[in-house]
Simulated scan of single mutants.
Amino acid sequence: MKNINVLILSAGRRVELVNCFKDARDSLGIKGNVVACDLSNTAPAIYHADKNYLVSRILDDNYIPEIVDICKKEDIHLIVPTIDTELYKLAEAREYIESNTSAKVLVSDMSVVKICRDKYNTQAFFEENGFNMPRLIDEEVIKNKDYKFPLFIKPLNGSSSINTFKVNNEKELEFFLEYVPEPIVQDFMEGEEYTIDAFVDFEHNPITIVPRQRLATRGGEVLKGLVKKDREIIETIKNVIKVLKPIGHITIQCMKTNEGIKFIEINPRFGGGAPISIKAGANSPMNLYRLLLGEKLEYSEEYEDGLLASRHDWAVFINSRGEQV
């Protein structure tokens, strides 16, 4: 069996994800390295990879050339992004990277990235295709005061729940419209919040769809999550994938409200809570290795319903010589 080398970008705190790729490789009996890179040598996940590199900032002109150099040096077969700010850059450079290396970039088409990264585009996508979202409170609605509190405000291109707030009154609305960069305002939703991990093959076919209820979060990332095979959510996500046509592992957030499913956002990448679904049996890293080996995958719901994840922090210790101890 040939070697398959994987490069995980912006590894940061994604220790679980790095280990999931290593475990999937070992379970399949594949040879090869899981390589991680990051801007900082204090990123804990790089020390759990087989090899690691430091790279420039994503918006730096050297970033893509550095990624290409790593791919050539390590004979990388798959590049895995992990944060939103990489997606535009990788979608733009995908053809260049793939034509100059042996690597496949796990990023959806630019049209998909544009829908997911811009909240107005996300709103338009869901509404135009018949999927429910909370009502957009635009400038005209605000001018006419045609809304009721509470509202919800977030940045147009935000991530990790940074600068997202529940708005309870006019005074707060006035303040947050000034405070939040490029704000987008919506009706506030009440209900059960879900993140759905979906894995989609390179021909846009869904392979696994795992709804997990968000029981507790911190900084936008799930601390406690419960896998629930919710039939309504699963069938709705199949329809979203059919229209959107992403590839790879994607995460979709929604609420189950008294008025039905209402969508929040789409992140066309591995989310921080992806290891929960992987542990349940919807193993996206393993599926990626199998696709790279030329296997044809079929849709499967063979994962554990009711799996509860309660996550915690763990430290990596580095001595004065830069060695993990």
Rank of each mutant, 00 (worst) to 15 (best):
P44K: 07
M133P: 00
I142C: 02
L59T: 07
S108E: 10
L308T: 10
I196S: 08
G12L: 12
E74C: 11
I266S: 10
R218Q: 14
E92I: 07
A91M: 03
D75I: 06
F165G: 02
G273T: 06
N239R: 15
L54R: 14
K166F: 04
K143L: 12
L78M: 13
I162T: 10
A280T: 05
K114R: 12
P268I: 11
N239L: 13
I153G: 04
S99Q: 03
S56C: 14
N132C: 08
A198D: 07
E16V: 01
N205C: 02
A309P: 06
S284L: 08
T236V: 04
I76N: 03
V15F: 01
L297P: 01
F199K: 09
K262L: 08
Q213V: 12
K73H: 13
V141I: 14
E295Q: 07
S277M: 11
K148P: 00
A93H: 03
N3Y: 06
K2W: 00
E190F: 11
K224C: 13
R94K: 15
I237E: 04
V227D: 08
A309S: 15
K154M: 10
N267W: 11
K73S: 15
K22C: 10
D313V: 03
A91R: 01
G12R: 07
K89S: 08
N144Y: 07
L87Y: 07
M189E: 11
V18H: 06
K51V: 08
K228F: 04
N267V: 11
K145C: 07
